[in-house]
């Protein structure tokens, strides 16, 4: 029996045409911010998620929230810190279990950071691999070829690992399954200049630019 006839017979039995081309949607995990989860459907496993934005736009707060959620599920995480900017105190305050975190400090070397990410993904078993290029100058981050990002995307495919990259600008382009562009809306201060003035929080907007419908959930990162 030809394949077309077999397909038609199968579809008639199931009561309608089936979508044979599209791949099943990846499993998504919570990022810890209900507004972002509701808008994006969560952070996909086996895919590259890119978080980008200028300094003080809430990128790192979002990343630490994802890390905290992942370690809270008892999964093992790896953070490749290209500029040695990770603050363990902030992470612990955000609920990241540091004993479930492998911290790789690649001192100001994006190339080493990419190699480390590749090794960790191929090593397997990680719930999350985060590549933090947040303080890497855009000129250097742009030098990372699309081929390298494609290689990372292929490496993480069909694995339960969430791959997240943080940068100032979008670098992975089409290799990212989800892109979140963070923009700071406002910083909240309390008190007056001469009496106990405090930085309370920042309010940021994360715009997803890689889905069929654009969404811009807002989240607030509060100070300690």
């Amino acid at each position: 029996m030809p394949a077309v006839a077999l397909k038609q017979q199968f579809e008639s039995l199931l009561g309608g045409p089936l979508d044979w081309q599209s791949r099943p949607l990846p499993e998504c995990v919570s990022c810890g911010i209900p507004a972002v989860d509701a808008a994006t459907g969560g952070i996909p496993r086996g895919c590259l998620t890119e978080i980008f934005g200028p300094a003080s736009s809430g990128r790192t707060s979002l990343l630490l929230s994802i890390l905290a959620q992942t370690t809270d599920r008892d999964e093992v995480c790896a953070l490749i810190d290209a500029e040695d900017a990770f603050d363990p105190t902030s992470a612990a305050a955000a609920g990241v279990r540091l004993d479930r975190l492998l911290w790789v400090r690649s001192a100001n070397n994006a190339e080493h950071a990419l190699k480390a990410a590749d090794l960790l993904i191929h090593g397997g078993g990680f719930g999350l691999v985060a590549l933090d290029l947040g303080d890497t100058p855009p000129a250097i981050a742009r030098r990372i070829s699309l081929t390298s990002w494609f290689r990372l995307r292929r490496a993480v495919e069909n694995t339960p690992t969430v791959l997240v990259s943080v940068a100032r600008q979008s670098n992975a382009k089409t290799c990212a399954a989800l892109q979140l562009e963070c923009v700071r809306e406002q910083a909240a201060w309390s008190g007056s200049l001469h009496s106990s003035r405090l930085l309370r929080s920042i309010r940021a907007r994360a715009t997803s630019t890689h889905r069929s419908k654009t969404c811009s959930p807002v989240f607030t990162a509060t100070a300690l």
């Binding site: 979002l62 905290a68 809270d72 040695d84 990770f86 603050d87 105190t89 947040g134």
Partner: peptide, 13 residues
């Protein structure tokens, strides 16, 4: 570790 929450984070130099 405390419960996961969205905290304002410091990126160190």
């Amino acid at each position: 570790a405390g419960s996961p929450s969205v905290r304002l984070t410091l990126r160190l130099f």
